[in-house]
């Protein structure tokens, strides 16, 4: 079995995210990191590989992003991926969700994976939907927010929470699955794995290499057009108490509640 894991480079959680008003796009400067949700997808791939229920030949990390995104791939490799593929091309810059999913699907097609894994959401994009787009282009069944996954007899048994409770779904391979963060506890990379990550094979490709129709990608060709960004309606800031002396803190909370007749 061949598993591809989609990973993304996102601004570090500590970096304040903002809009560049001159372009209407996200300001992607500042410290970046591997999307934390994607570490759960890599871990899920590793657990299938190490679990032994099915032989896994390869785990491949795949990303679409600027040159710097190669660091997300190194991180993915340090967590266990055998090699990685980096789609980077000025033509895909500014792609919307649908175009990004299309470009990733084309990149994946070349690998003919049996299983494509994704994270539940990207820290900066927060779309939860790239998996569904990729699956449609690949003509594969898919499910998002999966928190338990067992492989047997060419199929997956997946559990996830949907709007009426927990669902259990049987899915034939090949398939596209986005995993929820409750599926596992990702491992930390060893120092040796971090040092060795840059030596693992990395395939850098452009739109022409993977058969992407350039007229379907990039900000100019994306069907969802970002026309403006504005500030949300102002909301009165709440009161904040820094807990130093807990007895005092608790007194303040009780007084606050009492004032509002909540006790």
């Amino acid at each position: 079995m061949k598993i591809c894991v989609l990973v993304k480079e996102v601004p570090d959680a500590a970096v304040e995210k903002r809009i560049d008003h001159s372009t209407g796009r996200m300001d992607r400067n500042g410290e970046k990191n591997l999307n934390p949700y994607d570490t759960h997808a890599i871990e899920a791939a590793m657990q299938i590989k190490e679990g032994g229920a099915v032989p896994v030949e390869e785990v491949i990390a795949v990303t679409m992003g600027p040159e710097s995104a190669v660091r997300a791939l190194h991180k993915a490799v340090s967590l266990g991926a055998d090699r990685s593929v980096h789609l980077t091309d000025p033509a895909v810059a500014g792609s919307d969700v649908a175009a990004t999913g299309y470009a990733l699907a084309k990149t994946l097609e070349r690998e003919s994976p049996d299983l494509v894994l994704l994270g539940q959401q990207s820290d900066d994009g927060e779309c939860y939907t790239i998996g569904a787009v990729v699956a449609e282009h690949l003509g594969m069944p898919s499910l998002t927010q999966v928190i338990k996954m067992d492989v047997a007899d060419g199929a997956l048994r997946c559990e996830r929470q949907a709007e009426y409770g927990y669902d259990t779904v049987q899915i034939q391979l090949p398939a596209v699955i986005s995993v929820g963060d409750a599926i596992n506890e990702p491992r930390y990379p060893s120092l040796k794995a971090i040092m060795g990550a840059k030596k693992k094979p990395l395939d850098t490709v452009g739109v022409g290499d993977v058969g992407i129709d350039a007229s379907k990608v990039g900000g100019e060709h994306s069907a969802a057009q970002w026309v403006a960004a504005k500030a949300p309606p102002a909301k009165a800031a709440g009161e904040i108490i820094e807990d130093e002396d807990t007895n005092e803190t608790v007194e303040k909370i009780v007084a606050w509640l009492d004032e509002r007749k909540l006790i």
């Binding site: 919307d96 649908a98 998002t144």
Partner: peptide
């Protein structure tokens, strides 16, 4: 809002080559 709607809407966008906005 919901979960299924997100998946259907995104899949439909891919099928139709349509633009999609979520949330």
């Amino acid at each position: 809002g919901g979960l299924l709607g997100f998946e259907i809407g995104a899949g439909l966008a891919a099928r139709l080559g349509a633009g999609v906005a979520m949330e």
